[in-house]
């Protein structure tokens, strides 16, 4: 006979603390961006025009929708609608995959135009444009890695839910994975206007 210790609020707060550090991590990159933007305003605007606004906008809608589906999944499990919760989790994972496929096409097109860190074409465009694309690849790459991790987490939690290990009484794992997924969305909310929409 064992006594079960659990502290759901504590587990959630732990996740929030981790997410605060994630924000600081991405902020470092955004501050670098702000400093470079104040140094090379014209070049940043020129470089931003080379990004495809359609890819960026579609991915924004995809991420916002995936944030909705995972938030709904959490409400569903709280109301003990397991089947619905599972469907919503898998829709979220599918949207994450759509995001990454878009990213693949976007980056392929840019790389085929010779725009990638360290390329000779980029070196000819000058320091401002090169710094924009270096930061773009690094920030969006790190964000993409977070999308991959988040989708993996949600898949694992969905499998655990299907097996009955995550239930309407015990759903902290789903809750914390959902929090992580929303952070991915938050980062993109800033990344999108700063990189794609500079005039």
């Amino acid at each position: 006979m064992s006594i079960e210790h659990r502290d759901d609020t504590g587990a959630r707060f732990g996740m929030w603390l981790f997410l605060y550090t994630e924000v600081i991590l991405f902020s470092g990159l955004f501050i670098l961006y702000a400093v470079a933007l104040s140094k090379f305003p014209a070049q940043y605007s020129e470089a931003s025009h080379k990004l495809n606004i359609y890819f960026g906008s579609i991915n924004t809608v995809v991420l916002l929708t995936s944030s909705l589906t995972i938030a709904l999944a959490l409400s569903a499990i709280q109301m003990n609608r397991i089947r619905q919760c599972l469907n919503l989790c898998w829709v979220t994972v599918a949207l994450a995959i759509v995001f990454l496929i878009n990213k693949y096409f976007e980056w392929s097109a840019e790389i085929s135009h010779g725009i990638y860190p360290g390329s000779p074409e980029l070196a000819e465009m000058g320091a401002g444009v090169a710094s924009f694309f270096n930061l773009y690849y690094f920030t969006a790459g790190l964000h993409g890695l977070h999308v991959l991790i988040g989708a993996t987490l949600i898949s694992i939690v969905a499998i655990m839910t299907a097996k009955g290990k995550v239930t309407s009484d015990r759903f902290t794992l789903l809750e914390n994975s959902a929090l992580y997924w929303h952070l991915v969305d938050l980062v993109w909310i800033f990344l999108f206007p700063l990189y794609y929409l500079i005039l």
Partner: peptide, 12 residues
Amino acid sequence: MSEHKHEPVPYR
């Protein structure tokens, strides 16, 4: 930490 369950947020 005091334990309190959140009410599920309505889909709407």
